[in-house]
């Protein structure tokens, strides 16, 4: 007898199928509890390097980073060159930004009376000094806070010490910052030489390199921590830009320390580690501002704590972030 089912009905049934390979039992071997064979006891051979599943949370492999210093410089160069390739003004853009912001602030806040009661020098120097230093901090945090994500195309294809990337961002921003600081000093000199302002740097001006280092480390520490956490929880990326912006208002970038008094706002300002740094800079170069060793000491503690947290979180995910990003 012949099978009378129509071919079309059968052809449809062909589609109604499920996927299954023939030579694999449903429960594959891997589903059993894992008894990984213990690695053979202490091989007598000394290997140059061993890759294991374990992270060393507290170490920074300075030696390895040093051996990649050329890469650090080349990445920095790339970032700077790429920024002004095919622009007419080129690096001038670096200094144009803080100048425009300063002018905006002067325009907006000029109507607010008594704001700068404690400030006897040109207001432009007040804003510019704050903005330039703050700008370095905020660029460091914001740029490093997304570096794992931004550099994934490279990081997922080749190995080099991952810390090179945030370090190159810090150095790139340092170049930018130096140009902006140069602009500040140009205007500073202009006021002294041509306007007869009575300003002179005092001994505290020598703190400048320390202050810059503190800003860089604050930015690096916070950025590393945020960047590491962002590889798993991307919510943080949204918060960072906003948070950093908000922090600026809780610092002495816009309002002199004296003008806010000792209320809640003053307390918030003191918590912001950038306050002490900016004030120390202003005091050192212009003799006005709120130099406080206790604030600077607090800042130093912030640097240590943030760097510590940054390194821990960074090391915890450095070797596996490629899987989760």
């Amino acid at each position: 007898m012949q099978n009378k089912n129509g071919p079309s009905a059968q052809a449809i049934a062909f589609e109604n199928t499920m996927s299954y390979p023939i030579n694999e039992p449903l429960l594959a071997k891997g589903s059993e509890p894992v008894n990984s064979p213990a690695p053979p006891p202490a091989p007598e051979r000394k290997w140059l390097e061993t890759i294991t599943p374990h992270n060393n949370i507290f170490s920074l492999n300075i030696k390895e980073i040093w051996s990649y210093r050329d890469l650090l410089m080349i990445l920095t160069r790339r970032d700077i060159i790429a920024l002004y390739k095919q622009t007419i003004l080129g690096p001038i853009w670096f200094v144009l930004q803080p100048i425009l912001t300063t002018l905006t602030f002067m325009l907006v806040f000029s109507r607010t009376r008594n704001l700068h009661d404690g400030w006897h020098h040109p207001v432009i120097l007040f804003y510019l000094s704050g903005l330039v230093i703050w700008g370095y901090f905020s660029e460091c945090v914001v740029r490093t806070s997304t570096f794992f994500k931004d550099a994934t195309p490279i990081l997922s294809k080749v190995y080099f010490p991952r810390l090179i990337v945030p370090l190159s961002l810090i150095v790139t921003n340092l170049v930018r910052f130096s140009l902006q600081l140069g602009l500040f000093f140009l205007i500073y000199l202009f006021f002294i030489l041509f306007k007869g302002e009575h300003m002179a740097p005092n001994a505290y001006a020598l703190l400048l390199p320390v202050l810059i280092l503190m800003v860089a480390l604050l930015g690096l520490g916070a950025g590393m921590m945020i960047s590491s956490l962002t590889t798993r929880y991307k919510d943080l990326a949204h918060l960072t830009t906003f948070g950093v912006q908000l922090m600026m208002f809780a610092s002495t970038v816009i309002f002199p320390f004296g003008s806010v008094g000792t209320g809640l706002y003053g307390a918030v300002m003191k918590i912001n580690p950038m306050t002490g740094i900016i004030e120390a800079f202003r005091y050192g170069w212009m003799g006005e501002g709120h130099l406080s060793w206790s604030l600077l000491g607090y800042d130093a503690i912030c640097v240590v704590v943030l760097m510590f947290l940054g390194i821990i979180t960074f090391n915890a995910i450095e070797k596996s972030f490629v899987d989760s990003i």
């Binding site: 894992v34 990984s36 690695p39 091989p43 051979r45 290997w47 140059l48 390097e49 061993t50 890759i51 294991t52 599943p53 992270n55 990081l155 997922s156 294809k157 080749v158 190995y159 070797k319 596996s320 490629v322 899987d323």
Partner: peptide, 19 residues
């Protein structure tokens, strides 16, 4: 090439790796 770490086991290497 050390881009990501193993879940278990180890790799012993005696030289510089370029990938």
């Amino acid at each position: 090439s050390k881009i990501t770490k193993p879940t278990e086991g180890r790799i012993n290497i005696d030289g510089r790796i370029g990938s």
